[in-house]
């Protein structure tokens, strides 16, 4: 079968590139880790890929706010290529730092291209936190097809509190069905910290653009590809509300990557 080509974008400080590649490979894609310098120098072309994945990490140390420097690099150096990529109906996913980059470059919510309308700011707890969260999927996003109502993924970030510029932006996100994931409890109810790990507005954990093809989220689907990554895989039901998996089964995150791969297979 034809394998969609995924570009896993790297730069100084990227650090979830290899496991993101592993997840896409497992989902049936062909992946390449590409340093952003290869695009700016013209050695590689974004047009050669069908999926752009911006993985987690601390691009340029997140020194000027998470994802900001790379977001600007995309806006000022690759905007034409990116616009074409999006116009061609291809897919973009940003995970954690990748989500921060998509939001700060204005690719998300994406209503006015390359204009920032939302942000991801320092957690209410004022510290980095690694913990597992329940997520309720709600939107008609390409990436979240066939997911169970509640899934379980880890977050690991210090700046994940989603906020919008104003109420109008939030209203539009709701109206257009762009809110893909909200933090919740194991039964899908909305609950405060630590269920909402960062104080995000309306428990928003991930959003997509109007087409549902550009998707960003704070949690790490690539860290729940296999059953043993679940924090309670060594337990057995009924002790685990989150449908503990048998060792041979898969993790909740894999379907997200499969959806991306399947979309490209069906449409390109």
């Amino acid at each position: 079968m034809r394998k969609p080509k995924v570009c896993i974008l790297r730069t100084a400080g990227t650090n979830c590139d290899k496991e993101t590649a592993f997840a896409f490979n497992k989902a049936g894609a062909k992946t390449q880790l590409v340093h952003i310098n290869r695009f700016s120098s013209g050695e590689k072309s974004l047009g050669d890929y069908q999926i752009l994945a911006i993985p987690g990490g601390f691009s340029y140390g997140d020194d000027l706010g998470a994802g900001k420097v790379l977001a600007n690099e995309l806006r000022f150096k690759l905007s034409d290529d990116l616009s074409k990529f999006v116009a061609d109906g291809k897919l973009i996913i940003g995970i954690c730092n990748g989500f921060q980059i998509l939001v700060k470059s204005g690719l998300l919510p994406g209503n006015k291209r390359f204009k920032q309308e939302a942000s991801l700011i320092i957690n209410d707890s004022a510290k980095f936190e690694d913990r597992w969260v329940y997520l309720k999927s709600q939107a008609k996003c390409v990436w979240t097809k066939d997911l169970p109502e509640v899934i379980y993924l880890p977050v690991a970030h210090g700046e994940g509190k989603f906020v919008t510029k104003d109420k109008a932006v939030l209203g539009r996100l709701k109206k257009n069905g762009q809110i893909v994931f909200r933090y919740c409890d194991e039964e899908g109810r909305s609950r405060p910290y630590p269920y909402n790990p960062n104080g995000a507005l309306e428990n928003i954990a991930g959003i997509c653009d109007e087409t549902g093809r550009i998707f960003g989220l704070m949690p790490h689907p690539e860290r729940h590809i296999e059953a043993h990554q679940h924090p309670r895989w060594t337990g057995k039901p009924p002790f685990d509300f989150a449908r503990a998996k048998q060792v041979t089964s898969i993790g909740d995150g894999l379907q997200i990557f499969r959806n991306g791969v399947e979309f490209i297979r069906n449409n390109f």
């Binding site: 650090n15 860290r223 924090p231």
Partner: peptide, 21 residues
């Protein structure tokens, strides 16, 4: 929790475990 103990994706037994991790 302030340490990312799951990056690289290879985590099998994490430093925190239990019914509520």
């Amino acid at each position: 929790r302030q340490y990312d103990h799951e990056v690289q994706g290879g985590s099998v037994v994490k430093p925190l475990s239990g019914i509520v991790n």
